[in-house]
Design a protein around this nucleic acid. Structure first.
Length: 422
RNA sequence: GGAGCCAUGCCGGAGCGGCCGAACGGACUUCACUGCUAAUGAAGGGUCGGGGUUAAACUCGACCGGGGGUUCAAAUCCCCCUGGCUCCGCCA
């Protein structure tokens, strides 16, 4: 949630953000009004409550014959307090609902507008070209005995698949490469739960307008997470962290589940868009003052990964209207997918400033010893989807695929993935 | 699935319906002392919110797993929910 103090002191800043996102500015005024109503109701309750507390002491100290009269008055007061308390709770709930409608305040410089209004920050690598007819990742995956969509569909339905042989090995290699790099950069690895309680799912903001993207298990009222970000954000909920040694960095490894509701007919071929995949996710708890610098570091680590894998890509600054509600800024890295003739998202990294931590009550102590909400950031370090770009980019005329050098140690030295039975 | 126990501050652990924001111990911070890190003595700290202040000071309220209830008054009594632990059974 946004900072209620900012709402009071500088509502225009929030309005500007809402406008950049293409959201309704009037909800800011509604929230301000709800805040005022809430504080007025709270003040009234607290005043009555103080009076009641004072009265309680008198009752206790009173002599036997004074008591009945005092208690009669105290009973009236108790009724008033109860009513005032109910009003205060109601006003607080109304404020909560109003403020939940406001999405995180975007950072200065984020391009305004919708999905198409992104700004390309930089590109890296040549667009690969082939002197033969390039095969797409699924065709390659089938030649290599690496990807089996038919059996995936037989067992689990559309958008499910088996990774087999070098395909399975490739994914594990990719994850291990990413994990080693994360370790080298000071991340603590974490294998996270993929089923979480409703509070955690809600706290991380995934039960908002995109709730239908999430798998729910009604028998146990648990949600399957679409990213380990959920568990990683919940990890330190209700805690006060010590950031004296710098940011806390975690690398969460988990299987991710997404319903892909509303994307019927889109990316139906291969493993580009699937219901289940693996991901190594970076998650950082940082002093808000350091958040933007940390965000740049996260992108840099992502770029190092893509470069090590020999992929061509561009880094984009995602437009305000295309940000999730928690993100104040988001950088996506999109790799070139030869058979699609376009860039496709391989990583995403968001700076959520203090938006997430406020709801999850994750704080840290600043130099003065006061507790304040931390900034949270997250970013992809590797996912199953990368296999698409790797196979297509490094394919050769005979259907074999050259293994990028950085990956070879994780594949027992294998330098070429060869078609099976060839 | 059956039976029982428990939920209090950073941790351990007390707590008679008002004297409890909460004993005691540890950890922590500060000061003193032994020429240094150790030992000892003393003092001090919770969280969230409202008001107030340039900032403090100050002040009020809430918080003893969560939600209801009883009462003038609840950590303490009653109900519901959630979580954890132990034993038995079952099981990949």
């Amino acid at each position: 949630m946004i900072d209620p103090v900012l709402l009071r002191t500088d509502p225009d800043a929030i309005k500007r953000s809402q406008k950049a996102r293409g959201n309704d500015e009037s909800s800011v005024d509604a929230a301000v009004a709800a805040d005022e109503a809430r504080r007025a109701a709270l003040g009234e309750f607290e005043r009555l409550r103080a009076e009641q507390n004072e009265f309680g002491k008198q009752v206790k100290a009173a002599s036997k014959d004074e008591k009945p009269a005092l208690i009669a008055r105290a009973q009236e007061l108790a009724a008033e307090v109860k009513a005032a308390d109910a009003r205060a709770k109601e006003a607080d709930a109304a404020f909560g609902a109003a403020v939940m409608l406001l999405e995180n305040v975007v950072i200065e410089g984020v391009p305004a507008g919708g999905e198409e209004n992104f700004v390309t920050l930089r590109t890296h690598g040549e667009i690969p070209s082939f002197d033969f007819e390039a095969r797409d990742h699924l065709e390659l995956g089938e030649l290599l005995g690496a990807i089996d969509m038919q059996r995936g569909a037989k067992v689990s339905g559309a958008r499910f698949y088996f990774l087999r042989g070098v395909g399975a090995r490739l994914e594990i290699a990719l994850m291990n490469l990413a994990l080693d790099r994360a370790l080298a950069n000071g991340f603590t690895p974490l294998i996270t739960p993929t089923l979480v309680r409703p509070e955690v799912m809600r706290g991380t903001g995934f039960l908002g307008e995109h709730a239908d993207e999430v798998y729910h298990l009604p028998a146990d009222d648990l949600y399957l997470t679409g990213t380990s970000e959920v568990a990683l954000a919940g990890y330190h909920a209700d805690e006060i962290l010590d950031l004296g040694e710098g940011p806390l960095r975690y690398a969460g490894w988990s299987t991710c589940y997404r319903r892909e509701a509303g994307s019927h007919g889109k990316d139906t071929r291969g493993i580009l868009r699937v219901h289940q995949f693996n991901k190594l996710e970076m998650f950082v708890y940082a002093d808000p003052a350091e958040a933007e610098a940390e965000h740049d570091r996260l992108v840099a680590w992502q770029e190092e990964m893509l470069q090590a894998l020999g992929l061509s890509y561009r880094v984009i600054d995602v437009a305000a209207g295309d940000l999730g509600s928690s993100a104040a800024r988001k950088f996506d890295i999109e790799a070139w997918v030869p058979t699609q003739g376009t860039f496709r998202e391989l990583t995403s990294t968001s700076n959520c400033t203090t938006f997430q931590s406020r709801r999850l009550a994750t704080r840290f102590r600043d130099e003065s010893g006061k507790s304040r909400p931390v900034a949270t950031l997250n970013g992809t370090l590797a996912t199953t989807r990368w296999i698409v770009a790797i196979l297509e980019t490094h394919q050769r005329a005979d259907g074999s695929v050259r293994v990028p050098e950085a990956l070879r140690p994780y594949l027992g030295g294998l330098d070429v993935l060869a078609p099976v039975g060839a």
